[in-house]
Amino acid sequence: MLCRLEGIAKSFDGRPVLSEVSFDVAPGEIVSIVGPSGVGKTTLLTLIAGLATPDAGRIVFDPPPGRHNPVILVFQDWLLFPHISVFDNVAFGLKARGLPRAEVKRRVAGQLDYFGLSDKAHDFPAELSAGQKQRVALARALVVQPALLLLDEPFANLDRNLRLSTAAFIKATQRAFGISLIAVTHDLEEAFAMSDRLGVMLGGRLAQLGSVAEIYHRPASLEVARFLGPVNRIPAALALELGAACPGGEGAEVFARPEGLTLTPDPAGPAEVLEQVFAGHYIVYRVRLRGRELTVYSLSDGLVPGDRARMACHASFTHTEEPS
């Protein structure tokens, strides 16, 4: 365990923002905390970074952070120092530690090389693209060899087509530098791509923490499931008809994500296609089956509204807590 949060709570002006947040981070692990905007994710990071104090609970580090193993928070808008060059931004932490000039130059050069910024060394932050700014911020943070790196919404200011590659880059960088990392984001796809474990924050509480697959396929509550993507609620009888397991018995419900359902064209099939929407790399079908509307994602665009089809369920789950 590198860092453990125990029962963290924080309020602003009497309004609770975080309640009973507990989890730990192992050395060399990436934990992403996802949740809707305003749920307290950034507040959580500022508490871990020591920029604010929790009202209740404690944050334990082992070993405790210090000048040689700091906790560094990279803010959402990177906050590069605007009046100094890229080189000096990256060198900032090393100069603050009083390292010899030659050592600073050598380490910064290595860092700029790793992050592909060598040709930008003498540029000022205002001259950089969003992706370059983020890389400078990461280089500036990692050059001081932090024990724990905190990333606040690392994908928020990037173009859509840059986000997944950035997630892969962050993961590769974290592995290369061997540091622990906590990221908060509301970009699910990127969080899935880079995280060892994922936490879902809802209403100021950590609703679930686990591996990405566990959270996605076995969500702890319907709210968690719905936050991660659309969910079809299917009564037990219908689920059995679709071939899904129904451990809760006849009165229970099972849940299936749209990609867990398949449609096969069949003029005598029980399902009727109500709507077909082209969504880029998949097709969204709205289907009526036994009086219930379901959503299905498919790679095939062979059905149009009014067509009939057979439906099957290949992946379903039941949640363990009742929604509040």
């Binding site: 120092f81 900032f92 932490g93 603050a96 943070a141």
Partner: peptide, 18 residues
Amino acid sequence: LVQAARMLGASGTRVFFT
């Protein structure tokens, strides 16, 4: 910006001048 500089280990004097 000051918090970022402090996290990177800057003293008050360095924060002031940088």
